[in-house]
């Protein structure tokens, strides 16, 4: 591990000033669970680590008139145990409960989870100068890709590692971003980007910007929502496929739908086509199967991961069923 300086800004405005214009040289730290791994594996060699812990109120969960604001440094475990979240936005609590390990959830934060770097084993090995690290090759394309993407493949085959991003997008969450010019809000689904926009990054943040909070609107609170994922191991593992849905029901009629897929592409993908196919329809197993079949059309699996297509269909069907049974 290369030694680095630690900056402890007291304000967000101060923090963005320290950050500067180079992702590599100055890096943000929230819980630090991902950064530490990157530093130890020599994936990140920052000169300055900008620790956000000294900034007040980033750990707050605040109820406002329009919804709930979640500070970027709220610990995963605290959010999963928040009664308000559990009751009104259950899919979010479900997703967090399946994230990492109890130890990591006690340290890891909301902002850190959404901004963590990919887990692709080629990316994580310093000996592979892959395209995400500025190289010219994606080694996963010809290599060991059973856990990689089945959508938006080609340039870079990572899957975005955050599972809580899915439910947040399904709940129409906004991301608040601090930049030197001030703050702005973007829809979380627009926060994540695909490799063709910038292969070296997974979101829109510039080097001197910070994801400061997540806002979930009251209007999205919905008990008929669900997060469902499947993985090889039940204790500490990454999702093979995940789905988040939120269905506004009138009796058996679906009035409005959100469907977000994760662990299958370089970003969590909201599927408007599936939402349209559900809207105005009556809840039925047949409908869900139809939607699941529709979901995987256009998938572009790699040499070793076509099993994820069948798996994704199952996950979507189960997620929809569980959401309607709630």
């Amino acid at each position: 591990m290369k030694s680095f300086k630690m900056a402890m800004p007291k304000t967000l405005e101060g923090a963005v000033k320290v950050l500067g214009f180079d992702f590599e040289k100055r890096q943000l730290m929230a819980g630090g669970t991902d950064l530490l791994g990157c530093v130890k594996e020599h994936i990140a060699e920052p000169e300055v680590v900008v620790n956000l812990k000294g900034i007040p109120h980033l750990t707050d969960v605040v109820k406002t008139e329009t919804g709930v604001e979640i500070g970027a440094l709220v610990k995963l475990d605290d959010l999963a145990n928040n009664k308000e979240i559990q009751q009104r936005w259950p899919a979010l609590a479900q997703a967090i409960a399946q994230t990492a390990t109890p130890q990591i959830r006690n340290v890891g934060t909301v902002g850190g989870n959404l901004c963590q770097r990919p887990r692709c084993w080629y990316y994580r090995d310093e000996n592979y100068h892959c395209s995400k690290k500025g190289g010219s090759t994606c080694y996963a394309l010809e290599g060991e890709n059973e856990y990689h993407a089945i959508f938006e493949t080609g340039l870079c085959q990572i899957v975005h590692p955050s599972n809580m991003a899915g439910p947040l997008i399904a709940y129409d969450a906004l991301a608040e971003i601090q930049s030197p010019q001030g703050t702005r809000q973007v829809r979380l689904e627009k926060f994540f980007i695909s490799p063709d926009m910038n292969i070296e990054r997974e979101n829109i943040l510039k080097p001197n910007e910070i994801l400061s909070k997540i806002l979930i609107p009251n209007s999205s609170a919905n008990k008929n929502s669900c997060y469902y994922e499947t993985r090889e191991k039940q204790s500490f593992d990454w999702a093979l496929c995940g789905t988040s849905v939120s269905l506004k029901l009138n009796g058996k009629m679906i009035q409005e739908a959100r469907v977000v897929l994760n662990a299958i592409a370089p970003r969590p993908i909201r599927r408007l086509d599936l939402e349209a196919a559900l809207t105005g329809k009556k809840v039925s197993k047949r409908l869900f199967k139809k939607v699941a079949d529709m979901a995987v059309q256009g998938a572009t699996p790699l040499s070793k991961n076509s099993y994820k297509i069948e798996l994704l269909k199952v996950v979507i069907e189960r997620c929809l069923s569980e959401a309607t049974e709630a």
Binding site: W121, Y139, E142, E144
Partner: peptide
């Protein structure tokens, strides 16, 4: 898991 391209253990 071994990578056949460069010969490293990936996991």
């Amino acid at each position: 898991v071994m990578d056949r391209q460069k010969g490293h253990m990936l996991n």
